[in-house]
Amino acid sequence: MTWLKLVEGYMPMQMISELGLSILVFVLINWALHRAGMGVPKFWAGVGVWVFIQLYLKYRIYPPIPFSVRAIYGTVSACGIFMWVSGSEKEWQEFKRPILNVMDGITGFHKSVRMAALFVIPLALGGFAYNSFLPSFEEPIELRTVHPAPPATTKVHGKTFVLQVVQNPYRVNADGDYDQGYTDARIVEQAMGRLMKDVNDPNYNPWDPNAEGYIKYVREGGEIFFQNCHFCHGDNLNGRGLWAYAFNPIPANFTDAGTIAQLQETFVFWRVSKGGIGLPGEGFPWASVMPPWEQHLTVDEIWKVVMFEYWHTGYYPRTWD
């Protein structure tokens, strides 16, 4: 189904607005049907909405939501539907009517439904119980801290860096001074595609032969990225590299607002230098295949590649103030 993209990961705003919109559409349809004199009985409307929400949660979202979470949503939505159908005594009576009709077996049809329910309900519950008693070995859910607290200092290639004060030596203006405002103005546009601002201006295009200073360092960082990092983090820095499918935890998605965009540049420097093995326990250092890049790159190369990641995603590193 390529024409309709699944709601990716956990995007609560998209999910809630889509659900809200579709319920609004149902209300409108219901209202129109009532006007036309073909109203849907309250009972079936309630059941229908509840089933719709369950199906939406099960099939519309990827990766799938675990059953336990769907059960919570199911309970909450059932409560909501009950409040709706029991708004007034008259509505509540209307809602109960089909259930009572079946229990009383007022017509032949209702009698047969009653008979069927007598068998179907115990069988369904028994089957459900069997399934839950059957020993099953699902993948255990293990929650790791993606951005653990950084240490105060880190030692890379024999040099100690105090993370609170150290600055990226390549984030410089035309005079060669550290200047975040100057460099932030030269990163890619925060619009669809995240493209460089002007391909014909050496101030913005790292590949311009006349590019100097910051923007030239960005190219050098990019060369390092595309010789080392893209295998996992992907050509668009979105964590979908060549081997992303093989590893767990999955590679970080730098275009997501929750990774480098909310971190200080020095934090990223520490993470890159020390890699997965350098994480504290809550970050699952044993499982991460992220290399400690100090084994492969120089300090200068690490600073440049970090700067490239900010340039390419169009994010500003977070600052202390």
Binding site: L123, L125, G126, Y130, L134, P135, F137, A246, A287
Partner: peptide, 28 residues
Amino acid sequence: VSAFYYLVMEPPTPVTTYIYPAFIMVGV
């Protein structure tokens, strides 16, 4: 290399798996 996997040597299904659902069905 691969990521971490879990080997699970599945034990034979215990009898309770069949008994409890039967109780539940009768109860219902």
